[in-house]
Design a protein around this nucleic acid. Structure first.
Ligand SMILES: [Zn+2]
Ligand SMILES: [Zn+2]
Ligand SMILES: [Zn+2]
Ligand SMILES: [Zn+2]
Lengths: 169, 169
DNA sequence: GAAAAGTTTGCAACATTATAACATTTCCGA
DNA sequence: TCGGAAATGTTATAATGTTGCAAACTTTTC
């Protein structure tokens, strides 16, 4: 899958979303699962924001579409997208964000800016390695890692320096 | 603060809880904050389980006490206990657990057994170090780390080997 | 000690997030 | 084209967490 722009810097976000959808179609074909219109639309809505979107935010936008949707519609689509590695759930926010490392077998590590709300997904082998070692030291059989880091992104740090308060883009 | 038993192995849990409460009193005195009866009782309830307890579980037990409690009572007590480093919230479970490293400035890392539900809190400098480095590489100002690892504890691994299914103590 | 100020709790209502259960429709292979 | 599997619609409900305001309690100040 292609490299993507950082959320912190402006970029052609339409392209960014389009690419994500294209990649998703490919992945679903490869895996022989169905990226139905609802699922695709939910993925698109999530990708249109570099900030995590709550399930009910997605629901509201589906309703704006004229889609007659109820919570299960959204949660089912999100489950599907998660299971196929297309979105991640951010437990500390009860929200969802598009995966920027689809295909690459990875452990997501999320930098969550408390200023602007943007989230950057990283893959840090040194971190996953250290976690694996620590778990093994306890004879713990590792299955799933939740690693979410709250703080301030570079831009919000400088805004805070200047104005005394974090910005909210 | 004194060393504590691992949840995996049987131990005198009354002592374990008593010690935690004693430590908590000391900490609150040092910090000049009030460990009121409600707060202390909530802490005790949480400590009585090595498994994370949901806010409404705590609420139910308070009600059993005859305490006329509503959700805010519990959430406020939990907020207090969190702020003073006496309990942690496990985001992936929406539940709370007593901190086993009170006093020691630390980043909690939690091993959550999917078999028995027990949780072990670790401090792994190699992990926190790697996280810090990764964040710095992105010029991200780290504030709070959520690190929760789901898997199987040693005991549940062997039970699974023997019976084909994880145990539930 | 009494009044003032600050903190904690009680209480009612409400908001948000997530799931259960079952009917209906759509899809896809035989 | 038919029959089973997968996906969606629909309604209701469960689980988790918050707001706002008044009353009670503590600490400080005079
Ligand atoms: Zn990812
Ligand atoms: Zn920011
Ligand atoms: Zn701790
Ligand atoms: Zn276990």
């Amino acid at each position: 899958m292609s490299a993507r722009a950082l959320p912190y810097r402006p970029h052609n976000h339409d392209t960014c979303v389009t690419q994500a959808l294209t990649d998703a179609r490919t992945i679903c074909q490869d895996r022989n699962v169905r990226l139905t219109p609802t699922r695709e639309r939910v993925l698109e809505l999530i990708w249109q924001s570099h900030k995590p979107l709550g399930a009910y935010d997605v629901l509201a936008q589906l309703s704006d579409d004229g889609h007659n949707a109820a919570p299960p519609t959204v949660y089912r689509a999100l489950d599907f997208l998660q299971q196929n590695g297309l979105v991640h759930r951010i437990a500390s926010l009860n929200a969802f964000i598009g995966c920027t490392h689809t295909g690459e077998h990875h452990t997501g590590m999320f930098l969550i800016c408390q200023g602007c709300g943007n989230v950057l997904e990283l893959t840090a082998p040194s971190v996953s390695g250290a976690i694996k070692v620590a778990a093994e030291a306890e004879s713990f059989a590792l299955d799933d890692v939740t690693l979410e880091i709250a703080g301030l992104c570079p831009r919000c740090q400088s805004e805070q320096d200047e104005t005394g308060a974090p910005g909210n883009e």
